[in-house]
Simulated scan of single mutants.
Amino acid sequence: MDKKNALRAGALAAGTTLMMLLMSSPASALTRDDGDDPGQGLSVIETLGLFVAAPIVLYLVIHGLVMVGDKSHKKKDPTSSNIRTKADAKADAKA
């Protein structure tokens, strides 16, 4: 029963996609509209800088700021990593 429903859903999805592709008008990318001013294209270096280098640099800056904030927070944070255990307290009491 599940295979039949899956087959029906797949056929419906494929049919819907095919009909949408057939009914849609082609993109008019080659025809310029009134007032269209696309400007100059980007060079390979500009494209790599904009879409590769800039996101990497932005990630590293954010990562560095988070790391700096995390280190200063650890000193003040009273979590279990900063609380002395009973074994440490007993060892200090014996000494």
Results as ranks from 00 to 15, higher is better:
6 A>R: 08
24 S>M: 13
84 R>D: 07
37 D>M: 11
3 K>Q: 05
63 H>T: 04
38 P>S: 14
24 S>D: 12
27 A>M: 14
80 S>W: 08
45 I>E: 12
47 T>V: 08
23 M>W: 15
73 H>A: 11
32 R>L: 13
58 L>R: 02
70 D>W: 03
34 D>Q: 09
51 F>P: 02
1 M>T: 11
27 A>Y: 08
74 K>L: 10
9 A>S: 00
81 S>F: 05
3 K>W: 06
15 G>H: 05
56 I>W: 03
61 V>T: 04
86 K>W: 06
93 A>P: 01
37 D>V: 13
38 P>W: 03
27 A>I: 09
57 V>A: 09
1 M>W: 04
48 L>I: 04
65 L>Q: 01
33 D>N: 12
94 K>R: 11
14 A>N: 11
87 A>L: 09
14 A>W: 10
38 P>T: 08
15 G>N: 13
20 M>W: 04
18 L>V: 02
26 P>S: 12
24 S>N: 12
63 H>R: 09
23 M>C: 12
15 G>Y: 05
61 V>W: 01
89 A>E: 15
51 F>M: 07
91 A>R: 10
60 L>E: 02
93 A>Y: 05
16 T>A: 10
87 A>F: 10
49 G>K: 03
6 A>W: 02
4 K>P: 00
59 Y>L: 05
2 D>Q: 10
38 P>F: 07
84 R>S: 08
86 K>A: 13
62 I>P: 01
7 L>V: 14
